[in-house]
């Protein structure tokens, strides 16, 4: 178990405990965090679990797959260098305390 913070666009913070190996999208869904949709069920198909990952954790994340990279390109919300699809990030002890800021809109 490691802690993750999801911060809604309005600043509301949700602190959740995530089992190692669980992806962050599912952790958010399991904990009723609003602002993450995950329409496709976690297969990098829909781009509705987009979040901005805190700088300090960026180099500890798994590399983006081609699928994720392409889905991110198609998102209308501003895509930044720290934009990720949270379904593609499994929790690890190295990511304990990770902060993910959520965009105002998914899609």
């Amino acid at each position: 178990m490691s802690t993750a913070h999801f911060v809604e666009a309005d600043g509301t913070d949700h602190t959740v405990e995530v089992p190692d190996g669980e992806n962050l999208k599912q952790a958010a869904i399991d904990n009723l965090v609003p602002g993450i949709i995950g329409d496709c069920g976690g297969f990098a198909e829909c781009g509705t679990c987009h979040g901005y990952v805190d700088e300090a954790y960026l180099d500890r994340l798994p590399a983006q797959t081609a699928d994720e990279e392409m889905m991110l390109e198609g998102i209308l919300a501003p895509v930044e260098h720290n934009s990720r699809l949270t379904c593609q990030i499994p929790m690890t002890p190295q990511l304990a305390g990770i902060v993910v800021r959520l965009p105002e809109v998914q899609h």
């Binding site: 198909e45 781009g47 699928d67 392409m70 889905m71 390109e73 198609g74 998102i75 209308l76 899609h107």
Partner: peptide
């Protein structure tokens, strides 16, 4: 195999 097209087309 063209997720970029797909994402843009939805918009």
């Amino acid at each position: 195999d063209r997720p970029r097209d797909f994402a843009a087309a939805r918009k």
